[in-house]
Structures are given as structure tokens and as C-alpha cells.
Amino acid sequence: DEVRLHVNGHTIEFRGIDEEIFKILEEAAKRGADEEELRRLAEKLLR
């Protein structure tokens, strides 16, 4: 299960996240989070 999030012209792939987590990451990206911040956030949410 892989999703792709487009951030500042880059595509970031995440594996094993559900739609709810994806929406949180998408919102963070809209607020200016970079790839590293998004990955840290995803790790926290998946715990």
C-alpha cells in the first residue's frame, strides 16, 4: 500500500499509511513542512 504526496515539486512516497494519516501529512505539506518533517510526522503517527 503506497501513497504519493507532492510537495514543492517533489514526490514523496509513503508505504503502509491509511487515508487519515495521509490527510494529516497533506495538510502539513500545505503549511510548508519539508520532506524530513513529513517523514518524522508519519513515523509518530504510525506508532
Results as ranks from 00 to 15, higher is better:
Asp1Arg: 15
Asp1Ile: 15
Asp1Cys: 11
Asp1Glu: 10
Asp1Met: 15
Asp1Lys: 14
Glu2Val: 15
Glu2Gly: 11
Glu2His: 11
Val3Thr: 07
Val3Cys: 12
Val3Glu: 04
Val3His: 15
Val3Tyr: 15
Val3Asn: 11
Val3Leu: 15
Val3Lys: 15
Arg4Lys: 11
Arg4Gln: 10
Arg4Thr: 10
Arg4Gly: 05
Arg4Trp: 04
Arg4Glu: 06
Arg4Pro: 03
Arg4Val: 12
Leu5Met: 06
Leu5Phe: 02
Leu5Gly: 02
Leu5Asn: 02
His6Trp: 00
His6Gln: 14
His6Thr: 15
His6Cys: 11
Val7Phe: 02
Val7Ala: 04
Val7Gln: 02
Val7Lys: 01
Val7Met: 03
Asn8Val: 02
Asn8Arg: 03
Asn8Ser: 05
Asn8Ala: 05
Asn8Leu: 01
Asn8Tyr: 00
Asn8Trp: 00
Gly9Arg: 00
Gly9Leu: 02
Gly9Glu: 03
Gly9Lys: 01
Gly9Asn: 03
Gly9Met: 02
His10Thr: 13
His10Asn: 10
His10Arg: 09
His10Gln: 14
His10Met: 13
Thr11Asn: 07
Thr11Ile: 14
Thr11Val: 13
Thr11Cys: 06
Ile12Tyr: 00
Ile12His: 01
Ile12Gln: 01
Ile12Asp: 06
Ile12Met: 01
Ile12Thr: 01
Ile12Val: 08
Ile12Ala: 01
Glu13Asp: 13
Glu13Thr: 04
Phe14Pro: 05
Phe14Cys: 06
Arg15Val: 15
Arg15Ser: 15
Arg15Gln: 15
Arg15Leu: 15
Gly16Lys: 01
Gly16Gln: 03
Gly16Val: 02
Gly16Ile: 01
Gly16Tyr: 03
Gly16Arg: 00
Ile17Lys: 02
Ile17Cys: 05
Ile17Val: 08
Asp18Lys: 02
Asp18Pro: 09
Asp18Gly: 12
Asp18Cys: 06
Glu19Lys: 05
Glu19Met: 09
Glu19Val: 07
Glu19Pro: 07
Glu19Gly: 08
Glu19Arg: 04
Glu19Asn: 11
Glu20Val: 11
Glu20Gln: 12
Glu20Asp: 09
Ile21Met: 15
Ile21Asn: 14
Phe22Asp: 02
Phe22Gly: 05
Lys23Val: 09
Lys23Asp: 06
Lys23Gln: 10
Lys23Tyr: 08
Lys23Pro: 05
Ile24Thr: 08
Ile24Asn: 05
Ile24Phe: 09
Ile24Lys: 13
Ile24Gln: 10
Ile24Arg: 11
Ile24Ser: 07
Leu25Asp: 00
Leu25Trp: 02
Leu25Lys: 00
Leu25Val: 04
Leu25Arg: 00
Leu25Gly: 00
Glu26Ile: 14
Glu26Ala: 09
Glu26Phe: 11
Glu26Met: 10
Glu26Cys: 13
Glu26Ser: 09
Glu26Trp: 08
Glu27Phe: 05
Glu27Gly: 09
Glu27Asn: 10
Glu27Tyr: 06
Glu27Pro: 00
Ala28Asn: 07
Ala28Ile: 09
Ala28Glu: 08
Ala28Leu: 08
Ala28Trp: 11
Ala28Asp: 01
Ala29Val: 12
Ala29Glu: 02
Ala29Asp: 01
Ala29Cys: 05
Lys30His: 11
Lys30Glu: 08
Lys30Phe: 10
Lys30Met: 12
Lys30Ser: 09
Arg31His: 14
Arg31Gly: 13
Arg31Asn: 15
Arg31Gln: 13
Arg31Ser: 10
Arg31Ala: 12
Arg31Cys: 12
Gly32Pro: 01
Gly32Val: 04
Gly32Lys: 01
Ala33Ile: 08
Ala33Tyr: 10
Ala33Val: 10
Ala33Trp: 10
Ala33Glu: 05
Ala33Lys: 06
Asp34Met: 12
Asp34Trp: 07
Asp34Glu: 14
Asp34Phe: 10
Asp34Leu: 12
Glu35Tyr: 11
Glu35Ala: 09
Glu35Phe: 10
Glu35Trp: 07
Glu36Ser: 13
Glu36Ala: 13
Glu36Ile: 14
Glu37Gly: 10
Glu37Ala: 10
Glu37Met: 13
Leu38His: 00
Leu38Tyr: 01
Leu38Ala: 00
Leu38Met: 04
Arg39Met: 11
Arg39Pro: 00
Arg40Pro: 00
Arg40Lys: 13
Arg40Thr: 12
Arg40Asn: 13
Arg40Tyr: 09
Leu41Pro: 00
Leu41Ala: 02
Leu41Met: 12
Leu41Gln: 03
Ala42Met: 05
Ala42Ser: 05
Ala42Asn: 03
Ala42Phe: 05
Ala42Asp: 00
Ala42Trp: 04
Glu43Pro: 00
Glu43Ser: 07
Glu43Thr: 07
Lys44His: 14
Lys44Arg: 08
Lys44Asp: 13
Lys44Pro: 01
Lys44Asn: 12
Lys44Ser: 14
Lys44Tyr: 13
Leu45Trp: 04
Leu45Met: 10
Leu45Gln: 06
Leu46Val: 14
Leu46Asp: 06
Leu46Pro: 05
Leu46Trp: 03
Leu46Cys: 07
Arg47Asn: 14
Arg47Gln: 14
Arg47Ser: 13
Arg47Ala: 14
Arg47Leu: 13
